[in-house]
Amino acid sequence: MRAGELLALLGPSGSGKTTLLRIIAGLDFPDRGRIIFGGDDATRVPVQQRAVGFVFQHYALFKHLTVADNIAYGLNARRRSERPEKAEIKRRVGNLLDLIKLSGFADRYPSQLSGGQRQRIALARALAVEPRVLLLDEPFGALDAQVRKDLRRWLREIHDRTGQTTIFVTHDQDEALELSDRVAVLDRGRLEQVGTPDEVQEKPVSPLVLKFLGDTIEVEAIAQDGKVLVNGRTTPLTAPAGLTGPVKLYARPWQLQFAEADTAHLHGTVRSSYRTQGRQRIEVDRENAKTVVVEASDTARLAQGRPVGLRIVGGWVFP
């Protein structure tokens, strides 16, 4: 974790994302391993002294306090000697309300606000204590699709402006890839890969990372002399050094192209097709093999049952 970066913890449900986040916050404790904050071991530091800002999936705003009092809570909770002056607290709350674009809402109660507004308040409340690291637990999970998109963009802007070191948990690949500087992919409590969105997409370290980041096609292949062959025809892929024999080739739907039978790696018949956002997705049934999904530009519809050949133009083979 680098200072000032926006890191996404991505993984299927049950992979330990939230647990990891809670351990970083000090709300849960690790069985082994340590938590290091800027060189200091924080494993045994109690939650109050960790200086983290935590944003919960379901906001966890204080229902009985106004928006302004919610944001000021962390400052008011400090010991008198460390507590800022009343006017100073008021000024800071005002600044944060400006930042989250809810300036007129200081005297409202959380129940009078929409989900998106509540989550912004929760973020302002966490930022008010000037945390060393901001932790967001599926911050947009409880919001509907449109609000979620707006908030994503908005969070990115806030991060760019404040440079606040931030970790957020999500199970939504798009969210992680769009928002973060780096993505950490978790599975069953293990860290699979950490890298920039480009790195994890272009060079996934395992089939699991690959599968989790999007639709994946699996094809039986043979590795031979540094080449990968499917149905006896070479593909553009190079096999990792020393790998020979049967392997699995993984590809994205757009890494398959329709081709004439004499150059195709795979053969099958069209089962169904549908259009989505200017692209066409076609399911192709293969004899004695798994159905594959092909993504192509939105041209003429292919009739159901039509025989087609597919050519592999990209993909991955893992040792």
Binding site: G26, L27, Q48, R50, A60, K63, Y73, A77, A126
Partner: peptide
């Protein structure tokens, strides 16, 4: 417990969280 947890992450002691969050609720 999420409101109490929120209070704790904001630096409140358990006692403070009880008086300002749990009891009002």
């Amino acid at each position: 417990t999420s409101e109490e947890e929120a209070a704790l992450t904001l630096g409140a002691s358990g006692w403070h969280a009880f008086w300002t969050v749990t009891l009002p609720n």
